[in-house]
């Protein structure tokens, strides 16, 4: 049976997931209020990381490193917020935020895939330009009519614990959750996914097989920009309803770490982002409740130290796509 085969291949992951779920529900049984608020906070922090990591997954699976996610996010937050403030329409804001992500993605795609600019340099350029323009054109005192509203998904929001955590949030958070599964399906079950992985692993073989490597990379990196733009829009219009200079606060770089932690796979990246979010939530809870008398600086190290430990344990098992970082030149 194929299902049994899948189970035995993924027994570590399924087992871990089951353990985590049991643990979470045990916590929920002990104190439902604190459990829900801590997991909600974890997901609240994880949303931009998940979206950012998905941008990385698409890019690196096609062979293009994107370290400009941070800048794409910042521009998305900026463009979305100010478009919404100017038009007083949050819908326009979200669309403009997503489009600005595409524009940044297109810059990365054309400069690295067509122009063969070093991918790291292109990413750094995006980050610097993003900080520059969002600071320069920033105007204070602008407001948007309201942030993106939270809503309850019918039926799903009634599930204990999972409902209030994942299905009572705003539209971008819900989208982030869905896109992980969609992307997993696309990447591993469709022709586009097979070609994308081929182009990222061994582009000359893919080229020989008749795949247009350049076109596919261009499309993927550009389109992935939508997700980065939305991650930014989430920061300025869903998580808050304000723009602050530098508000992406390193989340784009964290997303890259989560991408590696998640072994370049969408669902594992989701798990990694949730893990990181929960560690932050735990640090905050320990600090706020004052139950243990540990300096907060030390508690706040916890997410990073634990991530490092898990990363070290997982190291050696993860492998980057073969052609990541290398420009493709036909006939080389």
């Amino acid at each position: 049976m194929p299902d049994m085969e899948w189970l035995s291949r993924n027994k570590i992951w399924v087992g871990t997931a089951a353990l985590v779920l049991i643990g979470a529900y045990a916590f929920y049984a002990v104190n439902s209020n604190i459990a829900v608020s801590m997991f909600s906070y974890a997901w609240f922090l994880a949303v931009p990381l998940v979206l950012g990591a998905m941008v990385g997954v698409i890019g690196e699976r096609s062979g293009v490193v994107n370290i400009g996610i941070e800048g794409q996010m910042l521009v998305g937050a900026f463009a979305g917020f100010f478009a919404a403030a100017a038009t007083q329409s949050i819908v326009v804001g979200v669309i403009v935020g997503a489009l600005s992500g595409i524009a940044m993605g297109a810059f990365l795609a054309f400069s690295t895939v067509v122009g063969q600019l070093d991918q790291i340099i292109a990413g750094v350029v995006i980050n610097i330009v993003a900080t520059g323009i969002t600071s320069f054109y920033f105007e204070s005192g602008k407001t948007i009519p309201r942030g993106l509203p939270n809503f309850d998904v019918p039926l799903l929001s009634k599930i204990p614990l999972i409902g209030p955590v994942f299905f009572s949030d705003g539209p971008i958070a819900l989208f982030a959750l869905i896109i992980v599964f969609v992307l997993h399906f696309l990447l591993f079950k469709t022709r586009w996914g097979l070609r994308t992985r081929a182009v990222g692993e061994y582009p000359s073989a893919a080229d020989t097989a008749g795949i247009n490597v350049i076109a596919l990379r261009l499309f993927n990196v550009t389109a992935a920009g939508i997700l980065a733009g939305l991650a930014g829009t989430y920061l300025s219009m869903e998580a808050t309803s304000t723009f602050e200079r530098g508000m992406s606060s390193g989340r784009g770089f964290l997303a890259l770490a989560i991408l590696i932690f998640g072994a370049w796979r969408p669902m594992r990246a989701l798990a990694a982002a949730l893990f990181f979010g929960f560690m932050q939530s735990l640090a905050s809870q320990l600090q706020a409740s004052d139950v243990v008398n540990i300096p907060q600086q030390f508690i706040n190290l916890l997410p990073y130290v634990l991530t490092l430990v898990v990363l070290a344990a997982a190291a050696g098992r993860v492998r980057a796509p073969g052609a990541v970082g290398q420009p493709f030149v036909k006939g080389d």
């Binding site: 909600s40 808050t240 530098g246 606060s249 390193g250 905050s284």
Partner: peptide, 21 residues
């Protein structure tokens, strides 16, 4: 307190999340 860093005074999403919790 915000985990000390470059963005301790401009990280509004973090502040929002803490308030929410």
């Amino acid at each position: 307190y915000h985990p000390a860093g470059d963005n301790a005074f401009s990280d509004s999403p973090w502040g929002a999340g803490e308030a929410k919790k």
